[in-house]
Structures are given as C-alpha cells and as structure tokens.
Simulated scan of single mutants.
Amino acid sequence: MPGDSREDAAVREVTERLKSAYAGRRTAQEIEAAVGKAYHHLRDRPVRDFVPVLVERRARRILADLPDPSEMD
C-alpha cells in the first residue's frame, strides 16, 4: 500500500483493530482483504488526513456484507 509512513502505520493499526473486533467471526485474510480494498478505493484522494478513518469505515461495511460463516452449514 503506497503512502507515507504515518498513513501506513495508521492503516496497520486499523487492520489490527478490526482483527480484534471481528475475532472469531472473520479471518485475518478477510479483514486484510477488506482493508486493502477500502484503501485502494481511497488511493487517489488528495486529502490524506482522514484516510485511516475512511478505510476503517469502508472495511467494516465490506466485512458486514460478507456471508456469516456460522450460517453457512
């Protein structure tokens, strides 16, 4: 993920926060994919200050839209 080191660190923190929030409900791979997809969507935005917050919000929506693994039996 391109960006400055502060933004990269903030996005990594978002990823770790989501892994904790979705522990047992989503795999690390699903979370990383959601964060990557959310970050990719914002990559060309000129104002970078809010990218981590926007990435987290978008990733949460992506994760919420995934099928619930407990209902897939």
Rank of each mutant, 00 (worst) to 15 (best):
Gly24Glu: 08
Arg12Asn: 10
His40Tyr: 10
His40Lys: 14
Ser20Met: 08
Arg58Ile: 08
Pro69Glu: 03
Leu66Glu: 06
Ala9Ile: 00
Glu56Asn: 06
Arg48Asn: 10
Ile62Ala: 02
Val55Leu: 04
Arg17Ile: 03
Asp4Pro: 07
Glu71His: 12
Ala10Thr: 04
Arg57Gln: 13
Pro2Gln: 14
Ala34Asn: 06
Leu66Trp: 02
Arg12Cys: 04
Ala34Asp: 06
Ala23His: 09
Arg17Tyr: 04
Pro52Ala: 11
Ile31Glu: 01
Glu16Arg: 14
Arg48Lys: 15
Glu16Phe: 09
Val14Ala: 04
Met72Cys: 06
Glu32Trp: 02
Asp49Ala: 15
Arg57Thr: 12
Ile31Tyr: 02
Glu7Asn: 05
Ala64Ser: 12
Val53Thr: 15
Arg61Ile: 03
Ala23Glu: 11
Val35Tyr: 08
Asp73Lys: 04
Asp65Met: 08
Asp65Lys: 10
Arg48Glu: 11
Gln29Cys: 03
Glu56Ile: 04
Lys19Pro: 00
Ile31Cys: 01
Ala21Gly: 09
Asp8Asn: 08
Glu7Met: 09
His40Pro: 00
Gly36Asn: 09
Asp44Lys: 13
Ser20Trp: 06
Arg43Ser: 14
Asp8Gly: 03
Val35Arg: 05
Ala21Met: 10
Met72Ala: 12
Arg58Pro: 00
Glu7Val: 02
Ala34Lys: 06
Gly3Met: 05
His40Gly: 12
Asp8Ser: 09
Ser5Lys: 09
Val11Gly: 01
Leu42Lys: 09
Asp68Ser: 12
Phe50Glu: 13
Arg12Trp: 09
Val55Met: 05
Leu42Val: 11
Ala28Ser: 15
Ser20Lys: 13
Arg48Pro: 08
His40Thr: 12
Arg60Glu: 07
Ala38Ile: 05
Ile62Trp: 03
Pro2Glu: 15
Ala59Leu: 03
Gly3Ser: 06
Arg26Asp: 02
Ile62Thr: 07
Arg17Val: 06
Leu42Trp: 10
Ala10Asn: 09
Arg26Leu: 07
Leu63Lys: 00
Ala21Trp: 04
Glu71Arg: 15
Gly36Cys: 03
Glu16Cys: 04
Arg60Gly: 00
Ser70Trp: 10
Val55Phe: 04
Arg25Met: 13
Ala34Ser: 11
Asp44Tyr: 13
Arg45Thr: 14
Ala9Leu: 06
Arg60Thr: 01
Gly36His: 02
Arg43Trp: 05
Leu54Phe: 14
Ala23Cys: 03
Ala64His: 09
Tyr22Gly: 00
His40Asn: 10
Ile62Arg: 01
Gln29Pro: 00
Arg60Met: 05
Arg45Asp: 14
Pro67Lys: 09
Val47Tyr: 12
Asp8Phe: 05
Ser5Asp: 15
Ala38Leu: 08
Glu16His: 12
Ala23Arg: 13
Thr15Tyr: 00
Val11Asp: 02
Asp68Trp: 04
Ala21His: 10
